[in-house]
Structure formats: C-alpha cells, structure tokens
Amino acid sequence: MKKFRGIYVKNDAEISVMRQAGGIVASILDELEKAVRPGVKTMLFEEMALGLCDQYGVKPAFKGYLGYPFALCCSVNEEVVHGFPSQRELCEGDIVSFDMGVILSGFYGDSARTVPVGEISEEAKKLLAVTEESLRLGIDQVQAEGNLYDVSLAIQKHVESQGYSVVRRFVGHGIGRNLHEKPEVPNFVPKGANPVVLKPGMTLAIEPMVTMGGPEVEILADKWTAVTKDRSLAAHCEHTVVVTADGPKILSQRLEA
C-alpha cells in the first residue's frame, strides 16, 4: 500500500479483499432489507447483522468503534445517521436507513441504504430516489486524475435542484485498513478547498445524507443518533468505490456466486 499526498493507494490484492468485504456488506444489507416490514423491532436487524457476520466469518466494523455499542446503525425517519437499534417498532410509511461495515483480513467494507417500510408517501419516495440518484451521479465523477470535489459538486447540485438539503456535519471518507482514512468526501463543495487529485487505487466511501428540510442536525442524548434539527425526513445511501484508469468501480456490491 502506497500513499499519495497522505492518501492511501491500494494495490490489486488489497482491492480484491475490499471487494470481498464490500460484497459481504451488500449481502447483509440485502437480508436486512428483506426483513423490513411494519411491526418489526429495529433490534431484530442488529441481531441479524451479528448473526450474518458470524456466518460470513467477518468482524462487525462499527461495534466498539469510538465506543459505538452496536454492529449496525439503524436510523428511522428524521434520524440521519448513527441511530441505535432498539425496541422501537417500525410503522407503515416509515423509512429506515441501514449503515453496515465489516472487517475482512484487515480491510473494511462499508455501505448504507434507506428503504421503505410498507407503502410510503410520494414525498418520501422522491427523497429516496433523489438520494440514490445523487450517489450515482457522484460516483460517475470518480475519474483518475479528476478532482474529488467534482464528486461533491455533482451530489450537491442534484440534491439542491430538487429542493432538498445535504447534511454538512457528516461526510464520506477514504477507507481501507482503517474505517476512516483521508480524504474526506463531502457532499458539498467546501469554500476555498484546493483540488484533490484522484489516483487509481484510491478507495472512497461516498455517502450522501439528504434531508427534505434544512441541513442542520443535532445529536440526541445517547450522544450518537443524529437527527434533522427541523425533524424533516432524511435518507442516506453509501457505496465504497475504487478509482481506476477505466473509471469508478463499486466495491460494495453483492458478489455473484
């Protein structure tokens, strides 16, 4: 593993391990999504995530990280990120975000998605669609010798063009042997930021966090759960991506058997 201006650049063998880790995360998220329905307590998803980590022979990345007490981040409605699994029951019309990470052979996989609970409102459907579209548009800008902030700009422009806001307190990040590495990957263009050149082998966790209202968040008494200050709905999508000479490659997709 080499560094370019403080950013780790992975070799093919390391990227292969990260692809396996990301594929496992995708498989876990698929199973969680299948179990979403009204009346389910969110602690079920934590239990499922732990069981699936055992099944796949990986370590849950978040459990114990900086003191976080669970394997899964499970955020409902106005909760943006870092929500705790609990005895809360999902209700028809809710939206729930799952953020999951694993460690495989010393490397991290990380991905997130927001899913509907039963039938949801048209407004909530649009929020989910815009968030997913902004992630896709951001990934499209992951080009060798390109500027990292083209990713940020693509996400911000799409979200704000739809009348929504991107959260500024939390951002994406580099990822590899550490869950959080350089560079930060904001979902907006920071004022006065110098260009960050993308090089083949850089691996990025890109994760738009989008609200129907304003961008401000506050942290609940548990010291982790971030909610929208105006209590508007929020959605969160994330993929781990590697920069290649042939364009972006998503590492957090389910591996074909």
Rank of each mutant, 00 (worst) to 15 (best):
T228N: 14
R168Q: 13
N11H: 13
A26V: 12
F4C: 05
E123C: 12
I28E: 02
M48H: 03
V117I: 15
P190C: 10
H236R: 00
P186K: 14
G118Y: 04
L32E: 08
M43Q: 14
F4A: 13
K223I: 12
I219W: 02
A226I: 01
M202S: 14
R177S: 15
D140A: 14
E181N: 08
F98V: 07
R136Y: 04
G146C: 10
L179E: 07
P183M: 04
S111N: 11
E207W: 01
F98Q: 03
E160D: 07
R113D: 13
L104Q: 03
P38C: 05
V242R: 02
V115K: 01
Q55G: 09
V142R: 06
K2N: 08
E216N: 08
V185I: 12
I7R: 08
Q156F: 06
D230M: 07
D246E: 14
V151S: 07
A154T: 11
S86D: 14
A226P: 00
V166G: 06
Q20T: 11
T225M: 03
E78G: 00
D222L: 06
P38A: 05
I206T: 11
P186L: 12
E181Y: 03
D150A: 15
G214S: 05
V243C: 07
F4P: 00
L66Y: 09
G201P: 02
I24N: 10
P183E: 09
V130T: 07
G247S: 08
H158A: 04
D99G: 14
H239K: 13
V9I: 15
R169P: 00
S86L: 07
R254M: 12
F188S: 06
A226Q: 09
R136M: 10
A226V: 07
G201D: 09
S97P: 04
I103P: 11
G57V: 09
G213R: 11
A49F: 08
A35F: 02
V210T: 15
R19T: 11
K182W: 06
P38I: 10
P215F: 11
V227C: 12
F70Y: 15
P69K: 12
V58A: 13
D99L: 15
A49L: 07
Y68L: 08
L148N: 12
L204Y: 02
T131D: 04
E92K: 07
V80E: 03
V117N: 00
P248G: 05
K199T: 01
Q141A: 08
M18S: 05
L66F: 06
G106V: 10
G192C: 10
T42N: 07
N77K: 09
R169Q: 12
V189Q: 11
G213I: 15
K229H: 03
T244G: 01
P38L: 10
R231D: 07
V81H: 02
C74K: 00
P208T: 05
L153F: 14
R169N: 12
K41R: 15
Q87M: 13
F107I: 03
G109V: 14
S252V: 11
N187S: 15
V115R: 00
V9S: 13
P38G: 01
E238S: 04
R231T: 11
N187Q: 13
Y65K: 06
N187C: 14
W224T: 07
K223H: 12
A35Q: 13
L44W: 08
I206N: 00
